[in-house]
Design a protein around this nucleic acid. Structure first.
Length: 577
RNA sequence: GCAUCGAUGGUCUAGUGGUAUGACUUAGGCCUUCCAAGCCUAUAGCCCGGGUUCAAUUCCCGGUCGAUGCACCA
């Protein structure tokens, strides 16, 4: 699948480093693998991508953003399964020093039940196995858990364990009760979070594709389990078409098939309307930030690839010339797994009360003990008897209840059996969660790689980042043709006017004008305004398009309005004069 | 993490047991009426630690980072 291309990745990362998009972290002390710094332009571009994400999820969908700590106490990750399930049982071969997955060694050596063994048992079991790397018999080895979460201590001298979160999602789950109240106790609702997550990868490589600290943008959408096939805005994307690579296609090595979201749901290819809706929304979002549709596909997880809680999962994969298809977004139906787990761990209810349209009549039998007598007679056992009686099946003589292994006969005159019909107005429901989860750093890399281009201008090589105007860090450059005769002061005035309108404009008067154009081309600045001698007489300037290098003359007082429209994409440069 | 290879101004590079070549870039100046032109000047470098040596950027050992292969990637 991976078809390495020697140049693109290196060219992109070289440019990114040189021009201040991406830097190795803490370079003066030697960089650390798996960590990067975003430089001035990279941080700006990342923020613009995040803001486009907010436009979709917060503004369009109405799912407010929350912000939770990156460190959480152990209980959170016990419930989520990360303390237990996010670690691997490792051992080291004493002969060749290779690090090995102990359970894999056991499986390979014919040991049964390795997955359920504790570390000591597993160590004993693999002592007679051969190291798959060097072939020597392992002998006495220590088996230990390598957890991919970074752990820390909360407070000084504390025994309280904390972990850096391996995903932002848990924040939305643990805040469920508050969120439910905020959304006035009605489903569906959602909450989103953009923030850092941490995974202590054993061996991160591939630049910014696999990081130990990375930025996720996750949405958790809470929905009634019976309503997953009725997204209230489904019609927005019902006819949205894209190629889908289902797990059946993958098993048969067939290519993806293009279809609408309506078809995909109706044919049972995508599990429900909610998942389909966010598959389509994700497609639109990725195209908006500048991913080419022909380098974008949606691939369904194979049944054995899915996390144990997910019923359906689709990855948006972006094609990289260096890394092949890279998972950039995952859209999963997490069911009620997380809320059930936190409800159990925390002892807090994580349900929504759903009112019936009309109350249901339910027959109910209540057993009401005469506690005045029972209490005196049974003393400390009375409370347990009271509880046991609620579920007892009384006969005419009385009821037998079991308290602490002892069967106690309660005569019929010590309680009253009351059969009644009551109105049940609704039920407690644990919502299901639909989760679109975006890897922002991977999106940034994909945007840079796809924007990188080299063309020829006047017989010379030109390096140009064809970034969408919406994500380009610098939005416009302003140049005086000559830095004299008042052209420079007029240019500076225009720059300030644009900056006051919230447009990131960069003024530059150094050296030849051609060099200044090239410099801006390389960082992806989509437009350049040039003030020339005609500007003083006619109050006009030229505006230059990065991609075509064409120029159009416009009136100075029209610049802010026109640039805003060009940057937003409401107007295309080719449509101008 | 293991194995192999590599690391010289911001970038690309020459070279060396006695502190380093050239080009591009950048900054200042001159020139210049629209796409990296020209001229002058300036800034800036031997990945880190230890060893050998009078002297290490150079040789040796260890580390870091990067590339590749293996392993890993809930």
């Amino acid at each position: 699948m991976i078809q390495p291309c020697q140049d693109v990745f290196e060219n992109v990362m070289d440019l990114a480093k040189r021009r201040g998009f991406i830097w190795p972290t803490s370079e003066c002390y030697g960089a650390v693998a798996g960590f990067i710094d975003y430089g001035p332009l990279g941080a700006m571009m990342k923020r613009r991508i995040e803001n486009i994400w907010r436009q979709f999820y917060v503004v369009q969908e109405g799912y407010y953003e929350i912000e939770c700590p990156t460190i959480a106490q152990e209980a959170v990750f016990i419930a989520s399964g990360h303390v237990k399930g996010f670690s691997d049982k490792m051992c080291q071969c004493p002969h060749c020093k290779e690090y090995l997955r102990a359970d894999h060694v056991a499986d390979g050596g014919g040991v049964c039940g390795a997955a359920t063994m504790n570390n000591e048992t597993l160590a004993a079991a693999i002592a007679t196995c051969k190291c798959p790397a060097c072939g020597e018999v392992l002998g006495n080895v220590e088996v230990y858990n390598f957890n991919l979460m970074f752990s820390t201590m909360i407070g000084p001298g504390s025994q309280r364990v904390g972990y850096l979160r391996p995903e932002t999602a848990q924040g939305m789950f643990v805040d469920f009760a508050r969120l439910l109240r905020f959304y006035r106790d009605k489903l569906p609702f959602g909450a989103v979070q953009i923030g850092k997550s941490y995974r202590n990868e054993i061996s991160p490589r591939q630049g910014m594709i696999r990081l130990r600290e990375f930025t996720q943008a996750e949405a958790e959408i809470f929905v009634h389990p019976n309503e997953k096939n009725h997204h209230p805005s489904f019609k927005r994307y019902a006819n949205y078409r894209m190629p889908l690579l289902t797990y059946v296609h993958q098993q048969k090595c067939e290519p993806a098939v293009e279809m609408s979201m309506r078809e995909a749901v109706d044919k049972g290819i995508i599990a429900n309307e909610y998942v389909a809706y966010y598959v389509a929304l994700t497609h639109e979002l990725l195209v908006t930030v500048g991913i080419r549709p022909d380098r974008l596909r949606f691939r369904q997880h194979l049944p054995d690839e899915r996390a144990h809680y997910a019923t359906d999962c689709w990855d948006a994969e972006v094609y990289s010339e260096r890394f092949g298809w890279v998972e950039t977004v995952g859209i999963a139906d997490r069911t009620n797994y997380d809320l059930n787990a936190h409800a159990k761990q925390s002892g807090t209810s994580m349900t929504v009360f759903i009112q019936y349209d009309t109350p249901k009549k339910v027959e109910r039998r209540r057993i009401i003990p005469n506690m005045g007598v029972l209490g005196k007679q049974y003393r400390k056992k009375a409370k347990a008897i009271f509880a046991a009686l609620e579920t007892a099946t009384p006969t005419a003589e009385g009821a037998d209840v079991n308290v602490d292994g002892e069967t106690i006969h309660i005569p019929a005159d010590l309680f009253e059996v009351r059969d009644e019909v009551i109105d049940v107005r609704g039920e407690e429901v644990v919502p299901h969660v639909i989760e679109p989860s975006y890897g922002i750093d991977r999106m940034c890399y994909a945007v840079l790689e796809q924007a990188y281009d080299e063309d020829t201008a006047d017989g010379e090589k030109r390096t140009v980042l064809r970034l969408s105007p919406q994500v380009a860090p610098v939005q416009v450059a302003v140049f005086p043709l000559m830095n004299r005769d008042g052209l420079d002061t007029l240019s500076e005035e225009i720059t300030i006017t644009l900056q006051k309108r919230g447009i990131l404009a960069e003024y530059d008067d150094s050296g030849a004008i051609g060099r200044r154009y090239r410099r801006q081309d390389e960082i992806g600045t989509p437009f350049a305004i040039t003030v020339d001698y005609e500007s003083k007489e006619t109050h006009t300037v030229t505006i230059r398009d990065r991609d075509s290098m064409k120029q159009v003359r416009i009136a100075i007082d029209k610049i802010p309005e026109m640039l805003s429209a060009l940057i937003k994409g409401d107007v295309k440069f080719a449509e101008l004069g």
